[in-house]
């Protein structure tokens, strides 16, 4: 049964689960993930507080760092890989991210477009948005 090429369960590392003994490599994977995630987190806090970066570029930098850190978590903590035994997991993830993108970007786009196109005086619009 063990040599059948089933898909891998999400969150499970590639090591056969019945193997006994030395488990260092798996611990090493988590440790590398922790170090990378900590590095990206510290960089995020630095970017938010530094005056070295052009202020309008800060949100973009923060977004890039956050996406990178989410990728680190997926690869090192959830063991999502590009392997063929992981295709189902990756496809489900890709579909989920597609919906997330539609919901977030669509909401922001529609609301910004409504704000720009509604024929209200700025004072009235402001009042309207605050309610």
């Amino acid at each position: 049964m063990s040599d059948t090429s089933y898909d891998r369960a999400p969150g499970e590392s590639g090591r056969p689960r019945d193997a006994q003994g030395w488990t260092a490599p798996e611990v090493l994977v988590y440790t590398i993930g922790l170090l990378l995630a900590a590095l990206l987190t510290v960089t995020s806090f630095w970017v938010a507080n530094t005056s070295l970066i052009w202020p309008p570029g800060v949100p973009l930098g923060l977004a890039v760092l956050a996406i990178a850190q989410m990728g680190v978590h997926l690869v090192f903590f959830l063991h999502i890989t590009t392997g063929s035994d992981n295709t189902n997991n990756v496809l489900a993830l890709a579909y989920g991210l597609f919906i997330v993108f539609l919901v977030v970007a669509g909401s922001i786009w529609i609301m910004a477009s409504l704000n720009a196109n509604m024929a209200m005086s700025p004072e009235l619009m402001d009042l309207h948005l605050q309610r």
Partner: peptide, 24 residues
């Protein structure tokens, strides 16, 4: 595990609605 993965993704989609509301 795959079924729970699907649940987690739908949970993340629910969070994305809250994120969108916050961003707006």
């Amino acid at each position: 595990a795959y079924g729970f993965w699907i649940f987690l993704l739908s949970d993340i989609i629910m969070f994305s609605a809250l994120f969108a509301a916050y961003a707006v």
